[in-house]
Design a binder for these strands. Sequence first.
RNA 1: CGGGAUGUAGCGCAGUCUGGGAGCGCACCUGAAUGGGGUUCAGGGGGUCGCAGGUUCAAAUCCUGCCAUCCCGACCA
Length: 479
Amino acid sequence: MAEKNKTKIPYEKVDTQYYSQWYNKVIEEADLTDKRYPVKGMNIWKPYGWKLMQNIDSRTRKHMVNTDHEEVKFPLLIPEDEFQKEADHIKGFDDEVYWVTRAGRNELDIPLLLRPTSETAMYPVFDLWIRSHADLPLKIFQMVNVFRYETKQTRAFTRMREIHFFEAHTCHETGEEAEEQIKQDLEIMEKLSKKLCLPNLELKRTEWDKFPGAEYTVGVDSLLPTGRLLQIAGIHQYKTNFAEAYDIMFEDIEGEHKYVHQTTYGMSARLVGAIVGIHGDEKGVILPPAIAPIQVRIIPITYGDKQNDILEYCQKIKEKLESSDIRTDIDDREDVRPGSKFYDSERKGIPLRIDIGSNELEDKTLTLVRRDTSDKKEYQFDELIDKVKHEIKDMEQSLFENAEEFLQENIVDADEISEIDENKIYRIGWCGNRGCGEEIEETTDRHILGTLYDGEQYNGECIICGNEEAEAAYLCKKE
RNA sequence: CGGGAUGUAGCGCAGUCUGGGAGCGCACCUGAAUGGGGUUCAGGGGGUCGCAGGUUCAAAUCCUGCCAUCCCGACCA
């Protein structure tokens, strides 16, 4: 028995150091990423991990296309002068851009930067694309890598210097239309969260925490087992801030020239980090069925004289599942014992496993095992599709609900600063003034993530100044 | 970007203090037996000791610089 080399790091929910060890171990064992690339904050997507990311992207893409967005791909490099047109935006990103200043041995006339996000790449072109109200709304998105030179403490998927990024950009005739767009983005986010099993809070960020250049920002935050919030999406209302800087105007129906109203919606590989962190256990990662590269793995238990019959039976099951669009594979490696295959399937987070040995072959049954609960059930072959579909649905729901419960359990009300001492989300009263806000952040060493986008009733008073007109603000450490 | 720790075979580590032979476990390869929860035995392959300088007759070991990883801050999606 090779006890000591097994994954035995328990799923520790509080200690960040332990969490970090566990996280790094399971993402490696699940074959999602290789972090040994010799540039800080830039990792390799391994085939299995990349399939997972692409499955997430496909879902996102589908939602975007269904809501009349079109996919584009802008260049990676942005000229310095275009980057510098919106003052707040530059201030927000200036310290973290990578510069390209040389080509071969020659200095470039105009330094180029690697996009940290694509506003400044796209908006000069929007000015060319948009002439009249007939060109609006303009709704596009792209999935690209962006670069941000920030934070010494990088982490796979959640804090990278090269980020796999989704960004949707829209232009509208009116502020109302732009507001509608934000509501639509949040609806998409909700649908996506269900499938990714990532319950979250949609919080309108504070003035000092909004996206650089935005009028306001809605952050979408999920709670990690460590009790820290991880932002998994950002939805921004730009109003005409960028339009004014980039001169993006249209002629309306009366012949008047007006600035467009803009929004953006961004997500990243953080979704993967959140899934790993929130759903993983002591055996490794657990992938939500909707996006798992392999949804069902069949494990033949072949020995003795029935090997071929068993393999044939497995193949039959695989074909039947695939005809119902269920992603399936067979672990038919020889010389690897079933026990190892079980562990392998678990480490990769494959939602469902089907064990087929001589018993199942004889009785025309199958043994179905769930990754999240380890429940093992025996079914008739005829029930295959129904049962697998049912378990997939049930697992999806149960992953989401468990995470939702964890999130809700960890939101606690605090009336006094002194009550704020655990790794939880605190709901506090806040008058909305920056002075009080900053005092809250400084004394508690936490961030105000904002107030619920949908709003909520709150009867308490500001935790600092006692003003009775306070709103409920959410306070937590950020990942 | 400030503080701390670490870097030796694919992974996990010993060896570094006190300079002289590069080792252990797992994984991998070959063979046989085994086979429903990480099989066993036998044999075998694999390392620029993170990188670059320096000290020395001699450097994994001592010194300097850099790179990367992990932790605590600051910053961010």
